[in-house]
Write a protein that binds this DNA or RNA. Structure first.
Lengths: 330, 330
DNA sequence: CTGAAAGCGCTTACAG
DNA sequence: CTGAAAGCGCTTACAG
């Protein structure tokens, strides 16, 4: 490849002058700058990043460990949010996709340490707690969509409770009175906190004749979950007679749409349906399109990058607000 | 950060000996190796990759340009396939997500050139032709899920025709006789080639009383497509009276399941349904679960990496076979 | 405004 | 088996 000295020879200047042009040093005489720029163009010169890094002693790289992230489509927005802001600040994002069997977290960290990353974002597939190895100590680290129970790292997670409160309140305000919340597994944080949020909305509403039924329809221990959504949705429609159903995630809503149709109910007319996630194309694939609380993955990715760029060291536990995407299902 | 000299001082050897240990040079005396290893461990030393790269004059990095890839969930398997093999060969994959408005292809290439990548994989979101800028010339490049009409680069794309032939033949062999193929837009390659594949299956089958109706239900020009799946599915079930429907992509199958249910048809009993893609969780979310031709993205990612690792320069046009995922819908 | 020297943290090539 | 020297392609720090 062509080096800085090749360019210098071609342009008839010292290689230090080429370096100045490349780094936008304003003290270069315009005539020389033009000569150098022309030579760079003609030779197709690009500064060797590895050489720049070794001399500068700064890598300009931020590491992103994606823990099983990429099995769920919308989680990619975490990376997108981080990447967009990183580039704006002339930083690179080095993304490592980690999964238990293939590439251990320790391996990923060692890898990033070898690149002298200036910070690490660790992001999880779903909102949960994580315990990271001690190795991380030398590098500023921030957690996204997960948190450290021992408070060694700052973190940002979705505000599950407020999301459930908001969409439940919206249902109540629209006049729905008998709401079934088909919740996620209550073993996970989202399931626990959303339950509290839905209950809070009912407590605040104080409407008469309002009733809320909450039930987990993703059951079983981690790694062995199964959905009883269809069965329970059908039974609850029969027995509880809800006028609205709130689903723990958009795929669940697909199942509920099928159940509703099979029972002769029209979504958005005889029964309102709401959900969480804004999962890929599912919400607009459904008819009527699904009103859902979109997970704030993009925002969390941006917040995490900003935390590192601003060289913060405070151990905050930040929450990010979901975005209500209004469509036609309630 | 701790350097090779810090380790040398700590272990009481020359820094060149540390270098030998790090690079698994067998000529180091075991006693010294152990001392060095202990010091590395104690000081938490990791070789500086940037310094290694500048001196070695090889980056060990392969670039991956993902053209709008990450808006469709299964396309991530392209990256996964490439990454798994790259790591096995001690190469790193530098993934750049490109989209028209944010980060131009030229920008991505310049970026990768700055890192002195040893090769570039360019992958597109859907099977199509691409024209890449001249800049790429200095670096070995291979295309995945897209191809270069001017034959400057080798490429691998899904074998659309064979996939359609295979699944259609399977339907015929199972005894289905009146098949509707709700095709993708015929403006795109997949739409064209799959049509030919389905027709070939019928031509080869030679069964009596067999009839095939093919129709695009994603219509309109690029960037302005819309689906008329539900409407046409309902009309065709009424008029053509198919015993099986083949869908151009799994999301379309979701719509057809709704139509079938609304018309009192039971999928897998009164009507068979097949599809293409194996799109995220959709096939197993449906009941009965959806038999579909899975796109060979993982395989294509691996093939592309292998092409680069083997330092091939032949301009081949490779195709990759879809995988038939047998479930319960026909 | 420009250049020659020194140095970043490593590996290569050579000497012992 | 080990080490001192030279060098990778740059930037830093200094001199003019």
């Amino acid at each position: 490849m062509v080096t800085i000295k090749d360019v210098a020879a071609h342009a008839g200047v010292a290689f230090k002058t080429v370096s100045r042009v490349v780094n936008n040093d304003p003290t270069v005489k315009p005539a020389n700058r033009d000569k150098v720029l022309a030579s760079i163009e003609e030779l197709g010169y690009r500064p060797n990043r590895a050489a720049q890094m070794t001399r500068r002693k700064k890598s300009g790289v931020i590491g992103f460990i994606a823990d099983e992230l990429l099995r769920v489509p919308y989680t990619f927005d975490l990376i997108r949010g981080a990447q967009d802001l990183a580039w704006k600040n002339n930083k690179e994002l080095m993304v490592l996709n980690v999964n238990v069997d293939k590439y251990s977290v320790e391996g990923a960290i060692n890898h990033l340490l070898g690149h002298r990353v200036e910070g690490i974002i660790y992001a999880a597939m779903y909102h949960r707690e994580v315990t990271l190895p001690e190795q991380l100590t030398p590098v500023p680290t921030v957690l996204a969509n997960c948190f450290d129970p021992s408070k060694r790292f700052a973190s940002i997670v979705p505000d599950e409770k407020e999301a459930a409160r908001e969409i439940t309140a919206k249902m109540l305000n629209k006049g729905y009175r008998r709401i079934v919340f088909l919740n996620l597994n209550e073993n996970i944080i989202a399931g626990q906190q959303r339950k509290a949020g839905a209950e809070q909305a009912f407590a605040e509403h104080k409407g008469k004749n309002c009733e809320l039924h909450i039930e987990s329809v993703i059951i079983g221990e981690e790694g062995n979950e199964r959905s009883v959504t269809r069965q329970r949705a059908a039974e609850l429609i029969e027995n509880f007679k809800p006028d609205a159903i709130l689903c723990g995630q958009d795929p669940m809503a697909v199942e509920v749409y099928f159940v509703a149709q099979s029972l002769g109910l029209k979504v958005g007319e005889n029964i309102g349906i709401g959900s969480f996630d804004d999962w890929d194309i599912i919400p607009t694939l459904l008819q009527p399109s699904l009103t859902t609380m979109a997970l704030p993955h993009y925002d969390m990715g941006q917040w995490a990058i900003n935390y590192l760029l601003n060289e913060r060291t405070d151990i905050v536990s930040q929450t990010a607000k979901f975005n209500l995407i209004n469509r036609d299902s309630f």
